[in-house]
Design a protein around this nucleic acid. Structure first.
Lengths: 126, 126
DNA sequence: CCGAATCCAATGGGATACTG
DNA sequence: CAGTATCCCATTGGATTCGG
């Protein structure tokens, strides 16, 4: 045990914070929605357009669970037609830095990953 | 647009590095396996025991895709019985810091998330 | 405009049994 | 020991339709 995670234990699912978080961020949509909300509050359909490919259903489901976890707050304006605005909570904002680090890694290594995949697949064909 | 991600665009799935990474780390097992390997090389069954709850099938599948992506290397020692050792590649190691930041956030906010869930659920019952 | 509800196809993933 | 193969059920998530 000598890595930067020396002593890190993978706990049973119930108590493991990492799993709890991954179950949320793990589904790609949650991560992308939070990421998008760091650009500012969005109304439902604006968010739908901004997150390419998400279905109405998945956006609803995703927003509900983010709201439940206290990462996103939902404010209804009783206008006609009704407006609903989604905003990051303070805790949601605190996720910004971890997310920034991860997205930076993703951008920096995307090409290497794709190259590795290509090499691996070429090997298997041979 | 004024957050730390000002200008961040969620690209269509094909070119989006974030999605590509999330499709990998997104499934909880990949993240946990990489996390565990930061403690040092593991043989198959040692890894299986260390990552609580993972099935043999999922460990195999997960390791294959991590290998394909160039994050993990697989070395076979032709002994009897055969030994197979899994190690993080350099790129795998470079994931350590982003992961550390995220796991730190997870640990720090786990209780708040659970509290938020409790409050949300209590509200709905009322 | 925002979203809930239903239907259904595809996928994920556990359990189990078998191989080099 | 380190897998592969098969079965099978549960969950995911898109499409569509309806309501406030």
């Amino acid at each position: 045990m000598n890595g930067p995670f020396a002593g890190t234990v993978v706990l049973p699912a119930e108590q493991c914070p990492v799993r709890d978080v991954l179950d949320r961020l793990g589904d790609a949509w949650s991560f992308l929605v939070v990421l998008r909300l760091t650009a500012g509050p969005h109304r439902f359909n604006a968010l739908r357009r901004a997150v390419d490919g998400i279905s109405q259903r998945m956006l609803t489901v995703t927003l509900r669970s983010l709201e439940r976890d206290g990462l996103v707050s939902r404010q209804v304006f009783p206008t006609t037609p009704p407006q609903v605005e989604y905003t990051l909570t303070e805790m949601g904002w605190s996720l910004a830095e971890p997310m920034r680090v991860l997205t930076h890694w993703a951008s920096a290594n995307h090409d290497r990953i794709r190259a590795a995949r290509g090499a691996y697949d070429a090997e298997r064909d041979a």
